[in-house]
Design a protein around this nucleic acid. Structure first.
Lengths: 158, 158
DNA sequence: GTACAATATTTGCTTATGCATAGATTGTCT
DNA sequence: AGACAATCTATGCATAAGCAAATATTGTAC
């Protein structure tokens, strides 16, 4: 399990790109683990499940999306999304209905209970995300990435 | 499976931070999938396995690391590293030996074949990493992150 | 209209991973 | 020295996820 701090024997990858990519993966893992723990403990949701619910709740189509779109948003393989929405349905947080114009397609619709769950879990999510990023005090690559996440809205590449 | 391009129904997360974190996860997934495919096809290695071998090869201790250090570098749970190094050992790419001064600890030592494997696989790894990042043409958040990865070495937070 | 390719989801199967625990060794306190 | 906490790895177990194939529906070519 990744630790942000602590003495680590020197592992000096050859190029800047490799070191930075490694830093990004490390950051992702640390935050993801913190989010997963908190969401699971406080709301019984995995990050994948929360992400799916959030995508539905904040979609512009009234809370329903095709599974392939969900797969892109979570991100997950489409076959995994099939089982994910089955889980959410068992929890009563989503429902499925066939697309009326193309019965191959399936829409996953968030329920009222699902919306309540997202609202509650988002407080945890945002809080843990901010706290974890604030706690990052590793090397320069990590700090740069965190800075990128916290930057003010501005030019992407000046 | 994440696609970088293509029309996606609007999913507008409430805050900048959430949108950026989502972008980072998306970037990580796209690149990771490309790396995994390429490494698996061309060298029979997962990204985790390659990362472990690279960490060993570029460590400053002669190619051996404790499993807990590996867990931090890959990143993976310690119990998963235990099984990962068992796989690498079966492939003949690493060996294990007990730390002479503390027999609780186990060092995983990269073998000559392991070093050859890393050298060969790194060409693929770096190439696919660069190509995939170059192919990213999604939204502004993604572009900003990719720019961060490609930036020249300079001040992290000016 | 029939055959066939394309699209969208589900399901069988395998596996890497995480969690919890056990096992082994070391350090500490008295 | 003995007891007990701390550290490090391995293992039993459960599960989410990927891959490949099956299923269902739609579009296209002739």
């Amino acid at each position: 399990m990744p630790q942000v701090t602590g003495r680590v024997p020197r592992i000096e990858l050859p190029s800047d790109l490799e070191r930075r990519w490694q830093a990004l993966r490390h950051l992702e893992a640390v935050v993801q683990e913190a989010l997963d723990r908190a969401l699971q403990n406080e709301h019984g949701l995995s990050v994948s499940e929360y992400t799916a619910l959030a995508a539905l709740a904040y979609s512009d189509d009234g809370g329903h999306l095709r599974q392939q779109v969900l797969a892109d948003a979570i991100p997950l393989q489409q076959s995994s999304v099939s089982r994910l929405v089955a889980r959410l349905e068992r929890m009563g947080l989503t429902e499925r209905f066939h697309c009326p114009t193309d019965r191959r397609g399936v829409y996953t619709q968030i329920t009222d209970r699902g919306r309540e769950a997202v609202t509650a879990a988002r407080a945890t999510y945002v809080n843990v995300l901010e706290q974890t990023l604030a706690g990052i005090s590793g090397d320069r690559e990590l700090t740069a990435l965190v800075g990128q996440l916290h930057r003010d809205a501005g030019q992407a590449s000046p």
